[in-house]
Amino acid sequence: MTAICVNDLVKKYKNGVQALDGLTLTVKEGEIFSLLGQNGAGKSTLINVLTTYLRPTSGNVTMFGKNAYREAAEIRSKISCVAQRTSIDTHLSLKENMIFQSKLYKVPKSESGKRMEMLISCFGLEKYLKYPVSSYSGGVKRRLDIALNLMSNPKVLFLDEPTVGMDIQSRMVMWDMVKKIRNDFGTTIFLTTHYLEEADQLSDTICIMKNGKEVIQGSPKALREYLRQDMLKISFSVKKDAENCFGPLKEAIALKESDLRHDKIITSLKNGRSDLEKTTRWLLEHGIPFLGIEIVQPTLEDVFISLTGENGKEAS
């Protein structure tokens, strides 16, 4: 069953900025859906429209068959959103925050008490109960933010860059938590992220956005297969070596600016093995120090760069 259906969505702000330009996407019920895009691609605007905060300029958004703008009141009781910045009331205690949320969503008192205890235990918040919320670390605040947004048992949980600024350990804990929410509560999760690895690890479906419209939507596997092209990877010991080599090599084989990635040059193979041979010969003849050269399968990052780069595909 379809949870969210967005059709030809346009959002033009009153200041003239067009954030969404005919976006179309579909989110299935019970899946983890990731939205990828560069800064300014329109991800946050889309979340604001889907959470009924912003009114779309044109287009259609339906959630569980209801129009998100005309039937916003009904939609609001079915969704919840964890914004980029935590939105906890620091003047309330942990339990008061959760009770306030349940009252906002009109959760019956008998049910809210049980749900609160379950969520506190599920998110490992027991040991923080006696401390003021303002003293919590960023990670604990984020956990509380997600827990309180689950108090209303939403059908769709929006997570706007949930792991931004987190170290890798905290990020992995968060990934487990997101999977747990989907598996234990059956909640549809719609998340935006900058981390391709995160989208790859978590998602059932990924949508890549560029300039306010979708470029591609599919499973991580389908997206990786999208390029249908092996990649040539040249590794250098330091970034400077890669940069020094990039200019001259560009003249020998066709390279794009986006092919230079830190201490590596990764480009799509145009002519299969002959490109590998040609490049290896060129590197050896010019005495360029490199660690290795190999043909690799494209990663999600390659797909993302390929689609969102200057000459990337535009949605038709």
Binding site: R76, S77, T90
Partner: peptide, 13 residues
């Protein structure tokens, strides 16, 4: 500043 303004606006209130 603390985000609760937005949270209340998207609540069924």
């Amino acid at each position: 500043a603390d985000g609760s303004f937005y949270r209340i606006l998207i609540a069924p209130v």
